[in-house]
């Protein structure tokens, strides 16, 4: 059993280091340590399930060891900034003041095609409009346009806009979500009145009713079975 624990620890740290060395390009939206846990856990847990001759503990012990590693590492990187840089890496400036930083691109094994693709996914087709692009530690790109190409905000035009509330479902598939109803400051009496105003008999007839508490509502009745 000790061998299983030590092996798991060695593999965990070996893969975390490999992921860091490979660069951010390989990552999806997970941090390296999270990706390692996701990759390893499924395989480790499946092994004793496939081979009935292997005790279940051979799957449970590595999974628990990984869980402990993940909690300890993620807790430690909250407190120690250099450890975060060591495990997760640092964001890299790919475009600075409109200039592509080729050294940073090479360091992260990032090609121009990939950069263009990531920018297109952010609705940016002209790389010349980007002032800053940062390759984040989870492998995503954050792009900031030159002011002349950036969308105009109500603040810039001095337009007064009212902030909408956050829509919260209060009836979901005929079931009243009491917690959400209370969080909006409403009660059953208010709900029954709103349901009646929409022409429904009771909450059981409602498929979805959501409101943001500012008068904006979405209401849909359940479809009757044919």
């Amino acid at each position: 059993m000790a061998i299983v624990i030590i092996r798991t620890l060695i593999i965990y740290f070996a893969i975390v280091v490999s992921m860091r060395v490979m660069g951010k390009r390989q990552l999806g939206e997970l941090e390296p340590a999270e990706l390692v846990v996701a990759v390893l856990m499924s395989d480790l847990a499946a092994h004793p399930l496939q081979d009935l001759g292997t005790p279940l503990i051979y799957g449970l012990v590595p999974v628990l060891t990984l869980l402990c590693c993940e909690i300890l590492i993620s807790g430690a990187i909250l407190k120690v900034s250099w450890l975060r840089a060591l495990v997760c890496g640092r964001p890299g400036m790919i475009i600075e003041n409109g200039k592509i930083i080729q050294r940073e691109m090479r360091k992260n094994r990032y090609t121009l095609d990939e950069l263009a693709e990531r920018l297109r996914k952010k609705d940016i087709t002209n790389i010349g409009t980007v002032r800053y692009a940062i390759l984040e530690t989870d492998g995503t790109i954050s792009a900031f346009l030159y002011p002349e190409y950036a969308p105009i905000t109500p603040c810039q035009t001095g337009t007064d806009v009212s902030a909408p509330g956050f829509p919260v479902p209060v009836v979901c598939d005929g079931r009243v979500l009491e917690k959400n109803l209370k969080s909006l400051g409403y009660d059953r009496v208010w709900l029954e009145r709103r349901i009646a105003a929409r022409g429904a008999g009771s909450e059981r007839d409602v498929f979805l009713f959501s409101t943001d508490g500012c008068g904006n509502e979405f209401f849909q009745l359940k479809e009757r079975p044919k």
Binding site: M1, A2, V4, I5, V61, T65, C68, I71, L72, G75
Partner: peptide
């Protein structure tokens, strides 16, 4: 504050202790 981390460290230590007990 760090209850989760403390529990994880305790669990890891318990796993090692269990492993040593198993060898014995």
């Amino acid at each position: 504050m760090m209850i989760k981390e403390f529990l994880a460290a305790a669990l890891l230590a318990a796993l090692f202790i269990g492993a040593v007990a198993n060898i014995r």
